[in-house]
Design a protein around this nucleic acid. Structure first.
Lengths: 221, 221
DNA sequence: ACAAAAGTGTTGAGAGTACACCCATGC
DNA sequence: GCATGGGTGTACTCTCAACACTTTTGT
């Protein structure tokens, strides 16, 4: 079979965008403005253009939806079962992203009526096989939290250890011992002291910033 | 942009097939019989047919190349940079496979002049971005060896602990202490005793088989 | 002075690591 | 009886988990 007359599947990227907001782990979903699954919630995504790389496509979609910078973005898995899109053969390369909820604004595009943050514990029914993709992303997210410094991408540059611990507690949905948590994190030698936080009505906490680059494998918990 | 008039990239699967042979970790490469990169070594792969899933495509390629059953197959990563194939835009979904070298026969197809096992330590120059893919596969392989039972897919159903240890030593290219290795593996409670091996000119070793399914995460080493 | 969150050490259990000799069989 | 791998135990170190009180600030 030659290269040109070969019947090609369509290729999309879908991005599972996580953030922490209101003490909860949230995922960004968009309400579909076109068929199929019009009016249903879905993970944001779109077709890969012929002259952009997969990661470029993912970053473009991310920017179109959220306008954020400073994101952690990682390829998740490629879903290519037959019949996952009623329009025909569509293979999707799924990514997951972690954004700091402070500096983002949701947008709406032609394909999208509405974008909204949903708690990962209260999801609506999803279009396509997006529930499967989201579940997979959550698993990977938790795994990455255990072995890498991705958690820091959900925080501002300077942060306190309590803020970091809160993020871990939200993602794993369980409490950690404060002393053990701090001991563990500090023993990794990945943090720099950055002065103290002012204007809090209690003992002012130590601020830290990350020495290394986000996402590196460091065996966290 | 509508679904049909959308210019689509081509989609291939490439499979990094590992085995242990002659006390070495080997990878299967094929000599390309067609342009581009004709005559160069490459990871086996091919176009995804419009009516087969990605994993089906990978298994088909695997069968076409090796005729093996009882393989461990896992999706690795999807490579989609521009210019990775001179013929045009080609996205490849890479898989990696572990096969037991005992029951396999290499084949040749129209696209392939020759297939051969190469030591991962002595690789020829590779076509496309296949060196990058192979390096990535090796990293993932070692990681999987630490955390899962994939190693067992390189062994026959019944095996001795020394055979298992040899596989780990080859993959990590270092020696492990016999007593500690055995203690660790046995403490996982994933093995069943299966009688003793006969016809060896030394003390007959205990044979074991795996209780659980191959590839599960079990925190091995 | 009180509310609120920050910060801090010790102990016990379990896992990992280092290390050397006897055992069962085939020839 | 000897060559060949098979099989076994102990002591030390290090990491992980459990646990409660004092400190510093703003109001």
């Amino acid at each position: 079979m030659s290269f040109e007359d070969y019947p090609k599947p369509a290729v999309t990227v879908d991005i599972v965008i996580f953030t922490i907001k209101d003490n909860d782990l949230k995922v960004l979903l968009v309400k579909r403005g076109i068929e199929p699954f019009k009016g249903m919630w879905a993970i944001p995504g779109g077709f890969v253009r012929i002259n952009e790389s997969l990661e470029d496509a993912a970053r473009r979609e991310l920017r179109e939806e959220t306008g954020v910078k400073d994101v952690y973005l990682e390829q998740l898995y490629t879903f290519g079962d037959l019949g996952r899109d009623p329009r025909g053969r569509v293979i999707t390369v799924a990514y997951f992203a972690l954004v700091n909820s402070e500096n983002l604004k949701l947008k709406a595009t032609t394909d999208v009526k509405e974008a909204k943050w949903f708690s990962v514990r209260k999801l609506p029914p999803l279009a396509f096989d997006h529930e499967k993709i989201l579940k997979y992303a959550l698993k990977r997210l938790r795994w990455k939290f255990e072995y890498t410094t991705v958690a820091f991408s959900l925080l501002p540059k300077k942060f306190t250890l309590s803020e970091l611990q809160r993020i871990y507690e939200i993602v794993f949905n369980k409490k950690f011992d404060k002393r053990n948590f701090r001991k563990k994190i500090l023993s990794l030698n990945i943090l720099k002291k950055e002065g103290k936080k002012r204007n809090v009505s209690h003992r002012p906490p130590q601020l830290y910033s990350l020495k290394k680059k986000i996402g590196e494998i460091v065996e966290i918990l």
